[in-house]
Amino acid sequence: MNLAITLKSATYLQKEFSSDEIKSILKNDIVFSFRTHKPFALLLFIHDVHKNFIQIHIADGTNVVLIYNFHQKIIVRKIDIGKILTNGHPVQIKIAHQQNHTLFTANKDFVVIPLMKAMKDNRESSSDTSLIEIENDQMIGFKSTVSKNQMFIGGIESSELIHSIPGFIGCIQGLMIGEQLLDLKQWATEIKEQNTTKSDHIKVGCKMLCDDMPCNNGGTCTEDWEHESTICD
């Protein structure tokens, strides 16, 4: 099983799940790490047909942002981890559910947030506009009808969702939902078998040239994932 994928340009991985599967995913702990130079990009978006969702993205060059719904209410939390976010160093994200609260962690920084397991179900109204309208350019919104339970990694393409968040460029690795480590290589293989142009922009593994070939004289190395080269400043 390969635990990492590199998105060489703004593209995405996507997978559909059954109702029971997505319910478990939305209620379980989430752990993964990433490396990038992008200041603003989507990392992960998970949703069900009842418009329960978890969104994780990076913004403003220093912030890791978590947005999710607590029943009908939308909760937004940010962790400012500084310039390490965009210098290509590993950043680990963790959402860990405790008995009465949830811990949202980015590297060594964390915030305590309301328990994320409180979701709408099919007996509750889905007409709350706070889950349909986009409050700002950093929030993904739903159209009136949602027919699929889905997970998106690195970007989104869906006729049922509204968004303006750029796609992620860099590597994502070790994505674990609960105790299950997701096989991102298999996801990438499935995309390749569909003969889509997306497969040209997805590479298995997370090997950075800057690690093996750092810049001379203390220069700053920037990974050019698309062209598999580096830039020294």
Rank of each mutant, 00 (worst) to 15 (best):
I134Y: 03
N122V: 05
I81W: 01
V91Q: 13
M116E: 08
E135R: 13
N107M: 05
I75F: 04
K185Y: 01
N107C: 07
D183N: 15
V204D: 15
R35G: 09
L115P: 00
S126Q: 11
K148M: 08
V31F: 10
F168M: 07
I74T: 15
H71P: 01
Q14W: 12
M151R: 01
I231H: 10
S127D: 12
T36M: 07
P114R: 07
L85G: 15
I84W: 00
C210L: 04
S229I: 01
I5D: 02
E223C: 04
Q173D: 13
G154S: 06
G154K: 05
M151N: 00
S125F: 08
G154N: 08
L66H: 10
E190V: 08
C206K: 05
S130M: 06
T197L: 14
Q186C: 04
A118P: 00
H101G: 03
D224I: 07
N136P: 03
E135G: 00
F104Q: 03
I231L: 12
D211Q: 10
S144G: 00
I132K: 11
L7W: 03
E223P: 02
P90K: 12
V64M: 12
I67H: 01
I79S: 09
L175G: 12
V91P: 06
K38A: 05
I191P: 02
K94F: 06
S159Y: 02
I54N: 03
L85T: 15
V65M: 11
M208H: 13
S24T: 15
D29T: 05
D211K: 12
V64G: 10
K38F: 00
H201A: 13
Q14C: 08
I177T: 10
I132H: 11
I191V: 15
L44W: 02
K94P: 00
K148N: 11
A10T: 15
G178N: 10
D128K: 06
T36K: 06
D60N: 15
L175Q: 11
E157D: 06
G82Q: 01
K8F: 03
I54D: 00
G82N: 02
V91C: 14
L184E: 12
G155Q: 07
L7M: 10
A41Y: 02
Y12I: 09
H57M: 09
R123W: 05
I46K: 08
M119W: 01
N2H: 07
L43V: 11
H47N: 11
L182P: 01
I75T: 03
T196H: 13
K27Y: 00
W187N: 13
V76M: 03
N87Y: 05
H37K: 05
Q92G: 04
K23H: 10
V31G: 00
H101P: 02
T36Q: 06
E133P: 01
M1N: 12
I56W: 04
E160K: 07
K27H: 06
I25C: 02
D121G: 06
F32I: 07
V76F: 00
L184F: 09
L66G: 09
S19G: 02
D211V: 03
Q138M: 11
D80E: 14
L181M: 11
H201K: 15
C206F: 04
S9K: 04
D211R: 10
H37G: 08
K73V: 04
A188D: 14
Q55D: 12
N87I: 03
L26R: 11
V146T: 15
